[in-house]
Simulated scan of single mutants.
Amino acid sequence: MNFTVAQIAKMIDHSILRPEFTVRDVREGCAIAVKYDVASVCVRPCDVPVAVEEVRGSGVRVGTVIGFPHGTSPTAVKVAETALAVEQGAAEIDMVINVGWLRSGDVAAVEQEIKEIVVAAGDAHVKVILETAYLTDEQKLAACRAAERAGAAFVKTSTGFAPTGATVDDLALMRSAVSPKVQVKASGGIRTLDALLAMTSLGVARFGSSATAEILEDASRRHLTRSGGSASLIA
């Protein structure tokens, strides 16, 4: 499949999630997101108001993370986090499941928590982070199916803070586990255009990355090289 640079940009959630980032770092990250007109900027919950201010008037949505990065907050806390984030202007919610519950076999509890967060999110899209590094294939499949039953918009591989991130095998498995109405997001270790393009062939629709500028500058260079400056496509 072929994509323009603009189409690739709209597949990216620019991540600004490291714990040491200052408010200035957050503002600079939002400026990158606006410059490249990505799908969204994904920020820490405390940074949602700043991000909303920084991207106002652009085509970039604000997303945030819930129960991040371990997923172990009580459900009521995750629900409250979600409601506050939406009230402050977040349009996308990336929640971490309770990995321990899933590994214990309590899929029903995982599903119920996702459902409560989906309700609290309202019109905001909920992306369910599985943290695949800690799961068997059977657990990944169960989590994906629970997320779909609970009304999530996306299933997502990783937080980026676990030992491993997105893999081709996991993405193919996740895509097979859900219907076309649920999208798949890859996150964790996606730092090159080639990696992103390879994952689109598996049906991945969204990518979390902090290497947004590098990826899109590479895409622009390839367009210019192939087209002499005209609106060419990248395979």
Rank of each mutant, 00 (worst) to 15 (best):
V62E: 00
V62H: 06
G63E: 06
G63S: 12
V65H: 05
V65L: 13
V65Q: 07
I66E: 06
G67K: 01
F68P: 01
P69D: 06
H70A: 12
H70Q: 15
G71F: 02
T72I: 12
S73F: 14
P74D: 05
T75K: 09
A76E: 15
A76D: 13
A76M: 11
V77I: 14
K78M: 07
A80F: 06
E81D: 12
E81G: 08
T82H: 04
T82V: 03
L84G: 08
L84H: 12
L84E: 15
A85H: 01
A85Q: 07
V86N: 05
V86T: 07
E87A: 10
Q88C: 07
Q88D: 15
Q88Y: 13
A90N: 11
A90E: 09
A90Y: 06
A90P: 07
I93F: 00
M95K: 03
V96R: 03
I97E: 00
G100S: 09
S104Y: 12
D106F: 11
D106P: 06
V107A: 13
V107S: 04
A108R: 12
A108I: 13
E111L: 11
Q112G: 12
E113Q: 14
E116L: 15
E116C: 07
I117G: 01
V118A: 04
V119W: 13
V119A: 15
A121F: 02
A121R: 04
D123Y: 12
D123W: 12
D123E: 15
A124V: 05
V126H: 01
V128K: 09
T132P: 06
T132Q: 05
T132M: 01
A133G: 07
A133F: 11
Y134D: 06
Y134H: 13
T136I: 07
D137W: 10
E138A: 08
Q139T: 06
K140E: 01
L141T: 07
L141Y: 03
A143W: 03
A143D: 03
A143T: 05
C144Y: 02
C144N: 05
R145T: 03
R145M: 11
A146L: 08
A147E: 15
E148L: 10
E148V: 01
R149H: 14
R149F: 09
A150R: 04
A150N: 10
A152M: 08
A152D: 01
K156R: 15
T157R: 04
S158G: 10
S158W: 01
T159V: 10
T159L: 04
G160M: 04
G160S: 09
G160K: 02
F161L: 11
F161E: 07
A162S: 14
A162T: 10
P163N: 12
T164E: 08
T164G: 07
G165Q: 00
G165A: 11
A166V: 08
A166N: 08
T167G: 02
V168S: 04
V168I: 08
L171K: 00
A172R: 11
A172I: 07
A172H: 15
A172T: 05
M174S: 00
M174H: 04
R175N: 05
A177C: 13
A177D: 04
V178R: 06
V178H: 07
S179F: 14
P180S: 09
P180V: 07
P180E: 12
V182L: 13
V182E: 10
Q183L: 11
V184E: 09
S187V: 02
I190A: 00
R191L: 00
